[in-house]
Simulated scan of single mutants.
Amino acid sequence: MSDEVQYSPGELDREATIYVAGHRGLVGSAIVRRFEAAGFSHIVGRTSTELDLRNREAVSQFFSEMRPRYVVLAAAKVGGILANSSFPVEFLSDNIRIQVNVLDAAREVGVERLLFLGSSCIYPKFAEQPIREDSLLTGHLEPTNDAYAIAKIAGILHVQAVRRQYGLPWISAMPTNLYGPNDNFSPTGSHVLPALIRRYDEAAVSGVETVTNWGTGTPRREFLHADDMADACLYLLEHYDGSEQVNVGSGTDITIAEIADTIADAVGYAGKTLWDTSKPDGTPQKLLDVSKLTNAGWTSKITLSEGIQRTVKWYRDHVLQLREV
């Protein structure tokens, strides 16, 4: 574990301009809700059509005009096993460009505090469980999402380089599997939990007798509601200053088969679940060691059962407006 001294940077100015990159996504929208509730009066966001973060000149111009004091980089090209396996070039290229453009522009205008959000897939496929922060770069990555993982690792190192070269107190956080309002529920681009919610809800509505999921159902996964993640982001910005990335999670995991059963119950599906074992399982277990964050004074509050019920309700309320990619 790192022996680096960490200290509290103090409360953020609620009247300062804060830019949330990816403000309409799963994490970004939760961050906006949390920061609004905390009294921030000048939260700035841009949609991808308003500002293409892959466009270096456009990003630089935006930062020059807005000159935010704080930045949360929650924008990324994300997806599940199918999307990552099918489009590794886009997952690597798009994410690298987004990160480099935003981090460089933020440095150029002297952004005071920046939080870079990554993913737990940065850690080796067979990392010792639960996964500690110092497991980074100690083994081979999961092949189905290695391109995305490499991009996120580059972002962590970019933040660390800025700290070393320019002395700015920027930080990185690595969330576990997130879910909640504004998630991607599409058949091809979603992660496991929203994919299962859609699959079982549609099965319940249509009355089909069986639902078939990928893999064996035995891999274990940790889940955290996006509102908990947003709360952790604000806490870290005000209480943590260190170069090592911080794991953010619930500290407990569950098998994919168990989460499938929980979701089936939540949507009222009474049929049978089958497993297509010819499809990949991905990493066998991915549980984060969250002791660093716990020791800093933060723990998750939303239980998995409560979070799933809330997410199912949001999905049903917005099902006609959901994206299909």
Rank of each mutant, 00 (worst) to 15 (best):
G25N: 04
I18L: 14
V162L: 09
H191D: 15
L51V: 00
Q129A: 04
Y123D: 07
V267S: 09
Q160V: 02
W275Y: 14
K125D: 11
M174N: 14
L103N: 05
I122L: 05
V78E: 10
A74L: 06
I96E: 04
H140N: 15
D134T: 10
A230W: 01
T294W: 05
Q245T: 07
F126G: 15
S243L: 03
D253G: 11
T294G: 14
L196G: 15
H225S: 10
S186G: 10
Q129K: 11
L82G: 07
L117N: 07
E36A: 11
R220F: 12
D52P: 08
D317A: 14
R113Y: 00
A270S: 13
G307T: 07
G297V: 04
S29F: 02
G80M: 03
A260V: 09
I31V: 14
L51G: 08
G271N: 08
I197S: 00
L168T: 10
L136S: 06
V27A: 15
L320I: 07
W214L: 11
V192T: 09
S85R: 11
V32G: 08
W298E: 12
A266S: 15
P284L: 03
E209S: 11
I156A: 06
G79N: 08
G189N: 04
L51P: 12
G110D: 04
D104H: 09
L53Q: 06
D241K: 09
E108Y: 07
D94C: 12
